[in-house]
Design a binder for these strands. Sequence first.
DNA 1: TAGATTGTTAATCGATTAACAATC
DNA 2: TAGATTGTTAATCGATTAACAATC
Lengths: 218, 218
Amino acid sequence: MTALESDTVLSLSTIRRLPRYLRVLQDFAASGKEYASSEAIASHLHLTPIVVRKDLFFSGIIGKPRRGYHIPCLIAHIEQIIHLHEPSSAFLVGAGNLGSALLGYSGITKSGLTIYAAFDNDSGKIGRMICGKQIYAMEKITAMGRRLSVQIGILCVPYDAAPSCADLLVQAGVRGVWNFSNRELRLPAHVAVHNEDLSAGLAILSIALNHQPKKATE
Amino acid sequence: MTALESDTVLSLSTIRRLPRYLRVLQDFAASGKEYASSEAIASHLHLTPIVVRKDLFFSGIIGKPRRGYHIPCLIAHIEQIIHLHEPSSAFLVGAGNLGSALLGYSGITKSGLTIYAAFDNDSGKIGRMICGKQIYAMEKITAMGRRLSVQIGILCVPYDAAPSCADLLVQAGVRGVWNFSNRELRLPAHVAVHNEDLSAGLAILSIALNHQPKKATE
DNA sequence: TAGATTGTTAATCGATTAACAATC
DNA sequence: TAGATTGTTAATCGATTAACAATC
């Protein structure tokens, strides 16, 4: 009893590339193309054709020799893998600068995620709307989460508030936390956590900038 | 003529972890500790002690058997590696939701990056201040960049505007681009690019959520 | 057919983990 | 000394790259 497609475990690196494939393919589709070769996809994403073919192969997508991959099928298939066809729901906690930006970020909607509501401790924000989303008091989160069966929590609170807010999200019933707080979270095993660490990106850039100018002498 | 410390090439994975070490170490310091073992650091970051020792070793940091690493030295050393002691300067392009949030994001300042100014095409924004940063018209970017010798460009414009804005940043003299646009950039080799792809994080979370409940039958 | 492009196995590379000797 | 913790080499694991046969 092997191998329904979803038994194949996609590697993290492959998953990370799927949304990028999607964007390129949508560009191709918009320009009227019907088929795309692994070479064409790869060159637009600074990848090798081999990695593209492997990613698509693991995703269970079949191409045609000499023509490449049928773009509409490919798009549909990738969207299905990252579950864009069955949109998920989220609560956002912490409507500060970053949180407010995410409330209005179209990329989230495009990724099939609907933010139902946001929560904050700041009485100046509670009751207001930000980017069309209502801001509620933190106390309401558990009851509302259970009532609406919300799936994902977007954590945009400061470092010190992160652990307690994450716990509240878990009590509210989320099964995944998208963590922008830079704080390491200890959550029950059934809750998936993805840490978004902006300072990592800055560190990479900073080192690239400062170590790069060293010209090889040999 | 080998091995000044900076000849050692740190791996991307190691660099990504350095800011996380920094945060834990600052917590330790705040709670009055003087030394930290690789085990203590690792347990706070869900890492193994071995990976911590290796990262610190590659960073040229020496610990003491039986005591661990001297926290103040360690902090100073890591800050030096990611160049927090010589802050760099940035221009931000695209003062939309995400861009505006980054203008007010304290994490950037903490990482030693000063945003000098922001640029936008929207005449409604030009001349205004957002989070204490002046918004200028895009046309001004080249002259201002060269005058101020700005090092990093933070690209927060929509997908379609990304290539031309990135080119303008290069003309303004930046040597690194922190790219939030989701668009693949083709820039000269001397310009470092770091892509921040939020949809990758969402894809990982979405797949974790939807493929995880599958209970093993064997 | 010839040629281009896929599917798939094998080789390489890099990062993590294991093991253990060195040291305070 | 005994014991804990580092520094460092070796083994494992996973992801990328190379190679090439299969196919349209």
